[in-house]
Design a protein around this nucleic acid. Structure first.
Lengths: 188, 188
DNA sequence: ACCTGAACACCGTTCAAGT
DNA sequence: ACCTGAACACCGTTCAAGT
């Protein structure tokens, strides 16, 4: 849990690269240059690429979980928190048209080392659990529909981000989310 | 338009690989082995990787367009064609848990050569145009909502496929599509 | 503790040259 | 027309050595 400066820099740089180019696009030489050390030095902090990838993905869902908890705490009415859920995915697009790390890794899934896969799953679990909790508290769907609706919202928002990124068009993302609201998938 | 056997074999093999590992996962040595020639021989048919990628993506949307036209022709009521739209994405999952070629390439967008990007765009255009046409004919949304709803359905279905693939769980795909119907995004 | 140069094994990409 | 050998560039990884 110590916050080593170089280790933190590596994680931050790797996160950016992975969001833009995926796990397969991560390479130690460019990463090292970004951080200001040599490629071989990364091995002092991470035993290999799989371990680095897993650490990046774990950090990613931990950060997401914290953002979502803050979003829940921010409003007394859970429906307001829910309305701001798509903002968390919008921010990646605002930030150099980046994709959710775990959406990219979902595409790459077949090629991921096992420990990385595990963290990608957890990202989905964290999102679906949060949505379930909030949907339930906001009472917008029947209790037997809650879990499925949570999964549907997560998948649809991830899809919107993916398509908007391929157009480099953040207004398309907004239009898609608005359309989900009009259709009834998200609360108006 | 001549149907050269080796060229066709290369395109078919490349399509499979790109759906599982993306454009960046396409490699000439494995591809050549699949086809039964040497890696360097692929360059006889395609000047470089960008050109091969563009040819694969173009073939992909051409095939999709044909499938969608057949789906439209199959039913007299357009609402029935629309109900079967998600089947086209389901088939990739059935087929060795593969992803839509253009969804993978949407993730990789930043790294794609220009001609490949163009074909990926066209895939989206073909799908949205078909959905718009069918939504319009089926009269399920107001005419001013048609285009946006078409985009929303395309993005949501792509997202469902992406998430289901990352779980290697085709029943999750079915549950997501069903949930879209319950929510009102897709016609029941 | 933290970092590096240099090397290794491997693999995708390219091109000049073969038949 | 169709194919290939061989070189090139790059990448993950290791390790002995430096501070």
């Amino acid at each position: 849990m110590s916050s080593n400066p170089s280790r933190e820099k590596i994680l931050a740089a790797a996160k950016k690269v992975a969001q833009a180019h995926g796990y397969s696009g991560l390479n130690f030489r460019d990463l090292a240059e970004d951080v200001g050390i040599k490629a071989a030095s990364i091995y002092y902090y991470f035993p290999n690429k799989a371990d680095l990838g897993a650490a990046v993905a774990r950090r990613y869902w931990e950060d997401s979980a914290a953002v979502l908890e803050a979003l829940l705490a921010k409003f007394s009415d859970p429906i307001h928190s829910l309305r701001h859920y798509p903002d968390t995915f919008r921010e990646a697009l605002e930030n150099n048209n980046r994709l959710c790390l775990c959406s990219f890794m979902a595409a790459e899934y077949e090629d991921l080392p096992e420990p990385v896969k595990k963290e990608v799953q957890t990202f989905a679990d964290v999102n679906v659990a949060w949505l379930s909790k909030v949907l339930s508290a906001a009472n917008v769907v029947s209790s037997e529909e809650t879990e499925r609706r949570a999964q549907a919202i997560f998948a649809a928002v991830a899809g919107a981000q993916l398509i908007a990124r391929s157009r480099s068009d953040i207004s398309l993302y907004d239009a898609l989310i608005e359309s989900y609201r009009v259709a009834g998938l998200l609360p108006a």
